[in-house]
């Protein structure tokens, strides 16, 4: 099948789904635009000269579109803000200094991906166990696992901080990764269990009869069937962890600071008021990794999200 323009853009339609008419497509486009508008505004702001950020009425476009847009709505795009993310003068007129944001971006990527992958590895095994080898009181255990996410973070933060202080985990990669892994586990187990529940147990029995041991049934038969689920769980977990602020603020040290924490400190320090274009530039950069992951996994993601709702 030749790939359409939409296919090339990665906007593939799920097969077997009725194509929407023009009216519906237009409706969806309008709603999508409304949802995307704030993001678009942030991205544009990141390219604006510093003074343009708070103009009223705002400048809206980097180009006049051949004279279509009046001049006072047009801003001159600049990359200056992105440079300032990594290096800028901290005092008026001072020499540019490194801000450490390269380190913070690395921290965010490292901590989020390791803890999500770790949770995925442990949680998938646990989910398979819960699904295939139910214990007495299986549902109770699952409920208990869910209760770990029932309290708002702010409620448990004090005991967690105290525990981390006592065992010396504050400010270490190990500590924050363990914490995020534990948080992601509950969600991973529940999500992956529902994917395993959807699989036909006959297929695994067939593999057993064909000579596979339990561990090979898991890796060669069950796991390949839930790739879409792994992708979906990975992305959801990544987004949650990527955006986490409170625990990162209180448990990370200067070396293990993540971007959300650093972002907060970058814009609120110095007593010069908020530098909105700098903030927008950090946010724009911050969006890119998660956007890329989601983009590359989107085929799996779509199947993962609609799993079980579409007749196979």
């Amino acid at each position: 099948m030749a790939e359409s323009i939409w296919g090339k853009l990665g906007l593939r339609r799920a097969s077997g789904v009725d194509k929407a008419g023009w009216g519906r497509t237009l409706g969806v486009a309008v709603v999508a635009f409304i949802y995307f508008l704030p993001v678009l505004f942030i991205i544009f702001t990141a390219f604006k000269p510093q003074g343009d950020a708070l103009l009223v009425p705002p400048t809206l476009s980097p180009t006049s579109l051949f004279g279509l847009i009046p001049d006072h709505f047009v801003f001159t795009p600049t990359l200056e803000n992105f440079g300032s993310v990594f290096s800028r003068s901290m005092t008026p007129g001072g020499a540019p200094e490194a801000t450490g944001f390269d380190r913070y971006f690395f921290n965010s990527i490292f901590i989020a991906s390791v803890s999500v992958l770790l949770a995925l590895a442990i949680g998938t095994l646990a989910a398979f166990g819960f699904s295939r080898y139910p214990l007495k009181g299986n549902d109770t255990y699952l409920f208990i696992i869910l209760t770990t996410r029932m309290l708002p973070a702010i409620v448990v933060i004090i005991p967690v901080i105290l525990m981390f202080r006592v065992v010396g985990l504050s400010g270490s990669y190990f500590g924050i990764i363990m914490l995020y892994t534990a948080f992601n586990l509950a969600f991973t187990i529940w999500m992956m269990k529902s994917f395993f529940d959807e699989l036909s147990p006959d297929v695994e029995d067939a593999a057993r009869i064909d000579g596979s041991s339990g561990i090979r049934v898991f890796f060669k038969i069950a796991l390949p069937q839930v790739i879409a689920g792994l992708a979906a769980t990975f992305v959801f977990g990544l987004i949650l962890t990527w955006n986490e602020f409170l625990f990162a603020l209180l448990l990370s040290g200067p070396d293990t600071r993540t971007v959300p924490v650093a972002m907060n400190q970058a814009v609120s320090s110095g007593g010069r008021g908020t530098d909105w274009t700098l903030l927008a530039a950090i946010e724009t950069l911050f969006l890119i990794p998660v956007f890329l992951v989601t983009f590359f996994l989107q085929d799996h993601l779509l199947r993962g999200v609609t799993f079980g709702t579409v007749k196979r």
Partner: peptide, 14 residues
């Protein structure tokens, strides 16, 4: 030395 055909066929879908 046994093999089995299931009512649902149970083919390996992947």
């Amino acid at each position: 030395g046994i093999s089995m055909v299931f009512q649902s066929f149970a083919l390996y879908p992947h």
